[in-house]
Amino acid sequence: MTSGDESRPVTEEELHAHADGLLPDGRRAAVEQYLAAHPEEAARVEGWMRITASLHDTFDEVLDEPVPARLSGLRPPSRLWPRLAAAAALLLAGLAGWWLRGALPGGDAYREAMLPHRAAVAHAVYSPEVRHPVEVGSDQEAHLVAWLSKRLGTTLRVPRLGPLGYDLLGGRLLPGDRGPVAQFMYADPAGKRLTLYVARAESGETGTAFRFSQEGAVGVFYWVDRSMGYALSAELPRAELLRVADAVYAQIEKVPG
């Protein structure tokens, strides 16, 4: 022992700091001397250090585990603002497209492009939602269908896409330019989502063939059947999306009416 700082008696706090590698350099020699002179205390501190080593031995492997999607899925891109920005970009791109085609809003080209475009924007806004992707979940499917049917003023039917690997998550009601719109959301086991947008068609339109529109990253197959417009959106290869769209179309067509 010398003088000053180093001659202070060693405290319990300093023993912990020693075990935790948090001891200031100026006190190391004093603590080490103390432990050398007190074997019981040294055994106690050694016991603490063994516990620390065991904790790391037991739990450090968590650091190497891949982070589950539900946690990494909370990444910022799923937040509202970036999503709204993505939706706004889609909206602008769409408007620019019509402008370049020389079609002003209100014209036929505008109306034709409206359905897939609105569907893609709704898809971009809601499909990244982690906690509240839908308003009513598939566990209340009967209620969901009755509610949305009533609001749209038609009998809706939710296609079953389970055999294709997409399970219903649920649905929500959205505002459209011709009244309420229904959005149904599906997900595959990897979490890949697709949405089916159902809106009342433009007056006079009773039926059309399948059409495809690429809206940014979102691909949309859309058609009109018995005065209802349908648009299926997902970030999927076109062929895969078509496969699902065929199934949706076949099931909706079967409904008598």
């Binding site: 904790l55 037991t58 739990f59 450090d60 968590v62 650091l63 190497d64 585990e65 982070v67 589950p68 539900r70 946690l71 990494s72 909370l74 906690r131």
Partner: peptide
């Protein structure tokens, strides 16, 4: 920092599911 949050939560709660629930709420 997610892996470190998961490590702490795992040691705190024991179970993986419960621990990740806590991490998910924390991130949100």
């Amino acid at each position: 920092l997610i892996p470190r949050l998961r490590r702490y939560a795992r040691a705190l709660s024991g179970g993986r599911g419960e621990a990740d629930d806590l991490v998910q709420d924390t991130l949100a």
